[in-house]
Structure formats: structure tokens, C-alpha cells
Amino acid sequence: MTQSLTQPALSGHKGMARTILLRSHIWLFLLAACVFFSVVSPYFLTVNNLANVLTQSAFIGILAIGMTLVMINGEIDLSVGATLALACALAIGLHNGGASAPVAIAAALLAGTAMGLLNGSLVALSGMHSFVVTLGALIGIRGLVFVYTGGNALLVNDFEYTEIPEVYLGQISLTAMIFFALVLFFQWFLTSTRHGREAYAVGDNVEAARDAGIRVGRHKLINFTLCGFLAALSGVLLSMRLGTAEPQAGRSWELWAIIAVVLGGTRLKGGYGDMWRTLGGVLALAVVQNGLRLLNTPNYVELIVMGLVLLLALGLDRIMLLGTRKGE
């Protein structure tokens, strides 16, 4: 036996606990933000407001779930905001045109899934980087939305359509519940299914994954398709909540989704991350935005503050990372 081979490997419960603490910076940040806004605003820590934050966070949150899958693969999807707008417009447009709500919704979801499939196929077959592919898709799909809506907002004729998500569990809206259910499902998907765990292998060391017989192209295609589907789902939920479909809906939301994922600690270059982190990132963004609005921060100042907050949160991650390195 050799010396270094017989030293106990770095693990064990103590190490685990520390790792969890060090790796969950976003929850500490979220906690701090909640405490701060509870102190400075009397309206923040109310059931009503918090329930509202959850509902508002769900739309970008659902985009972020799909983004997490793609980013664990080491890819990125910039087209989710446009896909959301497309699904939103299709759901309302088709429903106004006479299709029943379920048919219109199914068609919208299908369209988003198809966009995801297209992105995935292009990435898998062409070997182009997903940044380029989905940047093209962002512009193209947004163009489709403008063509379909004629550049105008579509208003839903049937007001019952907007009643569909008006289901509550206590104060929690259906939209928020769907978001949480998806977080739970996809977290399980990532940890307990073969495809989910292979996502890490693909993002971590693509050569090793390929050599081990994982069909990398097909694998990524599935994740892009899921990402497209989730973007469409978010679009459909938005169409119900707003009752209108703006051609500019979801503009730059792909960036907020990416920010939420990165804020959670999922690695941009892949191989590392999970849905709990993404949930933390999404909630942190939503809480800060909500808190700033409660304080009547002017819109443009809000953006500046949000930018600073992002840097702060990521800085916190960096400090903690250094902490772990030192520990190791």
C-alpha cells in the first residue's frame, strides 16, 4: 500500500456538511435579502406579497429550469424569451380564431417544443456552438412572432381563458405550484434518471462521455427540446395571466433566466449545477426586484441596483469558492 493511496479520501459527513454550506451561497444571500427588505419595508413580509413574488418568479423560473438542463450540458439557449413570446401569441391567437383552449394550448406547447428540437438538431448536427445557433433562433423566432401578430398586441376575446390559472392552494397560485412541481420533478430527473446524470458527464468531459458510448448529440437534442417545451409552457401561463400577447413579450428574459441559473451557482461551462440552485437564483432575483419596487425605486435605478446585486451575489460565490479551495 502506498502512502497517498491509503490516506482517507476527502469526504465523510463533516466534509459533506461543509460542502453543502459553502455551495449554497445563494440561499444565504436570499435569506439576507429577505431580512433586509423585511426591515426596510412593512409590506414585504406579508403573505400576500410573498405569494405574489412566487407567482411573478414562476415565469422566468420555468425558463431557468430548461436553461439549467442545457447549461449543465455546457450549452446555452438564448432563444427562450422569443419562444415564450411565440407560445404566448399562438395560444391567444388560435383561441381567438376559434380553437378551444386545450387545443390552442397544445398547439402553442408543440410549437415551442419544435423550436427546441430545431435548436437541438442544429447544435447536434452542425457542430456549431449553441450560442450562435440560438442567437439566430432568438432573432428568427421573434420575427415569426411579429409576422403572426402583425406587430400588435393580441387581446384574448374569451375572458374565461384568463380564469384557468386562478386556482389557489391557500395563497399559492397554480402558476407558482406548477413552477415548484417542475423544480421538484427536474431535480429528481437530474439526480435519479440515467439521462439526467449523463447530462453532467456530457458537460463535464464530453470526450469521456463520447468514448463511453453516450450519444452526445442525441442527448443534447433532448435537453434543447425540453428547454423549448418549458419556454412554451411559461409563455402559455403568461398568456393566461395577462390575457394579452405582446410581440415584445419575454424580451431579454433569456438573460434573466441565465442570470438566475448562474447566480444559483450552476457553471456556465457545464458539468455542474442543479435545480435547487436555480430555484434559489430565481427567488433571489424576484425578491430583490420586488423589494426594490416596494421601496418605490425608479425603474432605471432598479436596473442599476439589480446589476450591483448580481455582482455582489457572484462575489459571495467566489469568496466561498476560495474558502473551499483553502479547505481542500
Binding site: T193, R197, Y200, A201, D204, N205, D211, G271
Partner: peptide
């Protein structure tokens, strides 16, 4: 040619992980 973020077992059997059906 290993994936550092995966476990030892996952690396050993990479590409042919056992499932309980349905990809689980």
C-alpha cells in the same frame, strides 16, 4: 478521461449505468 463532477461509480460504469426501467 474522467468526469470530475461525477462519482467514482458513475465514472466506472459511464455509458452503461444500470436502470430500474424507464431510464431511472
Amino acid at each position: 478521461s474522467l468526469s470530475p463532477e461525477l462519482s467514482v461509480a458513475e465514472n466506472i460504469f459511464l455509458g452503461s449505468w444500470p436502470t430500474k426501467g424507464l431510464g431511472i
